[in-house]
Amino acid sequence: MEGIMVSLYIFVLAIFVGFELITKVPPLLHTPLMSGSNAISGITIVGALISAGAGHSQIAKILGLLAVITATINVVGGYMVTDRMLEMFKKDKKPNKKQGAA
């Protein structure tokens, strides 16, 4: 039971850290925040990799494969789309500088 209590402490403290960090994110960036934090929740991939590779039973491996696919979509897609969005946010007051075709 000791292990679970430590984990529970970690969980609760991490939620507080999350609250502190996220309240400082301006509404301007709320969409990238969602896609970026969503990519972080793809961390389940580390569990998925073990399930898919540990070879206990065929069913466990197939579930693991599906988990790897969905988690990878989440991670790769989430980070890429976040980067694509953040790249677009510019402060530039002089819009003629390096404006590619919209």
Partner: peptide
């Protein structure tokens, strides 16, 4: 623990 921490951060967000 890394899953717990990441999940908690995203949950809070």
């Amino acid at each position: 623990n890394v899953l717990i921490i990441s999940g908690a951060l995203v949950g809070a967000s």
